[in-house]
Amino acid sequence: MKIADVEAVALAVPMKNEIAAPISMPRAGEVAGIVFREYRSVIVRIRTDNGIEGVGECMTRLSGTALRDIVRYVAPLLIGKDPRDVEYLWDLLWSVMMNRGHQKGFYLEAMAGIDTALWDIWGKSAGVPVWRLLGGRTNPKLWAYASSLRLRDIGILREEIDAHKAAGFNAMKVKIGRDPMDWRREIRTVEQIGDHAGDGVTLMADANCGYGHDRKTALQVGRALEALGLYWFEEPLAPDDIDGYAFLREHLGIRVAAGEADFNRFSFARFFRRDAIDIVQHDAARAGGITEARKIADMASAFRVLYAPHTGSSSNIIMTASLHLATYAPNFLIYEYMRSDWNREEPNPLRRELCELPIKSFEDGCLEMEDRPGLGVVLNEEVIERYRLP
């Protein structure tokens, strides 16, 4: 079996109306119109000479056409190769830019889409799910949390909490940090959320690096969250502030989580060696694909760090790749099940309509995967054509 064709497709769904930044970010008033002007995805489709097609997705946070063109540029390297040689092909792609200044960013996201499609082919050719190739079904039941409660009017938040509970979730994540200078007001809202959710619901907080300007503010917020009984404090600081994360972990009782904005095992190793985080949250669609994501999770287990994969506001392909990793990983903690979109009035069709998640059941806050070959997803071609970029 050999690779015969590599196709990359950039998709975009423009927002009809401009929205304010739904998460914490610097200079939000100026940059939100660029960052949140559309839902985006880049799909990678790899076909073999015996008619098997594998699909993957690149985490697409900015220009989808840039990612698409990177995949197209490196595609000749893959033609004629055996798609099951995932380690060799990952290293081959890594070798292109290892010493050329692109060990993170767009290039690793492009690699991620390619790598995920290769695993899909391998699973389909063997007639087994990707999680079986990774090492088997370590976790038949996956604890999942509803992501995310964005700080809005408390009446709207109560409705969302009730909807999550009615759907079967007993864990939820709250977005904080949009106003770092008025964090006490946000903490009061988090307290109201906890009161309404009740003792049977586990809550986590995600600051999206909102306190990167000041570690001491992050420490104060962490202590306030700890007093409210939240399970973890996610991304309080800038993604590269290893010293800051180590400082917070040393001084806080609440678990410190991070990793969605990082790209490879060499970078994560620095965090693990410093004992800087309790929970690692890398995203397979950003951190080089399933091949690299597995290595990061395995390395984390050696440092007693738990794995809670990030899934992001992209399509269900990304969410599915993380489902397979979660089913395999011995140090898996909880799965991020996306339940909200950037724009409450304009749902993301790339997540809701492009493909269905291969979920067999969802009971008591836990989900179980279908036993399908490969990733186990089937793409909606009409959605692809509707949102394809030229």
Rank of each mutant, 00 (worst) to 15 (best):
Q103I: 13
Y73A: 09
P330N: 01
P22L: 03
D120Q: 04
P330Y: 00
L325G: 04
A20C: 09
S340L: 13
N316Q: 05
H213I: 09
P140V: 03
V221D: 12
E7H: 11
I23E: 03
L333Q: 09
N331A: 10
A110Y: 04
A197E: 00
E38I: 12
I114V: 15
N139L: 05
R27W: 10
V86G: 06
R178H: 14
M204N: 03
V190W: 05
M369P: 03
K141Q: 05
D179T: 13
R150F: 12
N380S: 03
T60R: 00
M97V: 11
P26R: 01
T291E: 12
G194V: 11
I317C: 02
D206A: 00
L350E: 00
P358V: 07
I154M: 03
F268I: 04
G105S: 00
L323E: 14
R40N: 01
I317M: 06
I161V: 04
D243E: 14
R344T: 13
E235G: 08
V71H: 14
A246P: 00
D283W: 00
F36H: 14
R47S: 10
R270S: 05
D371E: 10
V42F: 02
N99L: 08
A126L: 15
L11R: 02
G51C: 06
P239I: 04
G210R: 01
D364E: 10
I290D: 06
E234T: 04
W232T: 06
F36D: 06
G80N: 13
E18I: 07
V174L: 01
W342D: 09
L225K: 05
P236G: 15
S95I: 04
M59C: 05
E87G: 04
N331M: 10
T65E: 15
E363Q: 09
